[in-house]
Amino acid sequence: MANFALTGLFNKFYGVVIRKGDLLMNLSYRKKLKDLSSLLLFIAPFTVLYIIFLLFPLVQGAFYSFTDWNGISSNVRFIGLANYIEAFTNDKRFINSLIVTGKYTVATVLISNVVGLGLALFIENSVKIKSMLRTLFFVPYIFSLVVVGFSWKFIYTKIATNIYQLTNIGFFNLDFLGSHKIALISVIFMSVWHGMGYYMLIYIAGIQSIDQYILEAATIDGASGWKKFRYIKFPLLMPSVTICVFTCLAGSLKVFESIFVLTSGGPGYATETIAVNIYNEAFGSANLYGYGTAKAVVLALIIMVVSFIQLSYFKSKEVEA
């Protein structure tokens, strides 16, 4: 009797309906158990690695952000929110890096997407050389950011000066990496150059998925080229815009390697983004790991909030054809 009650409770808990008097495990419950075990078996390799090498250090990192740990000593003191308060009240260099990251992100996201979409629209119309253009505009994306950083260092410093000597065109005599005013623009230009092909590809795919009949109908109704773009193509491309802006936004807020190689954040702190700031201050020279991690957590939160707002706003603008 007790046994029966227990089984009943068990089955109730797992949401299994059992026929009166039936003490055997019922078939659907067995199937559920089998499904669960095969699910666990298949996800185990990825999930175990994920937990060990990502989730676990992440939680640990978040914990260190509340301490004054220097990365080496075993003496870890819990100091609550002190690191966070310090970052926002006393650390002018960090605040500066927030502003630099903001400017960099807005410019890179805007230019990459406007140019990428514009180019995609043009390329989609150039029937004969479409696939060649698509392939070649994407090429910079396959280079590592370290290679890209060094290449542009060479171009901005050596080649630009050389072109100036040869042609006397004033533009090439600009101090691309040494001037406070220009350095950030140079960095943004390099980033757009490197990543734009990626967004262009996604936009081309988006354009191709638009039903031709809709555009033909619009042409018959007398819609001009601009109107067709503004009222038909663009709204139907919104899913592509959402994903491109999302990718570019998260990538730009995290940007590190290319700037690290090109300018290391200089001149002064003119191109020091949050990631470069964290590296220079916490992991490069002074060993302020607890403090550096707190700033990294702030950056993670910024990325999450910005991405969430962007995704929900852009998704609300998407329409069905």
Partner: peptide, 15 residues
Amino acid sequence: FLIPFYTYMIPLVQL
């Protein structure tokens, strides 16, 4: 997708 690598890079090196 959302977490920058340096948030957990030091604990990861320790691990």
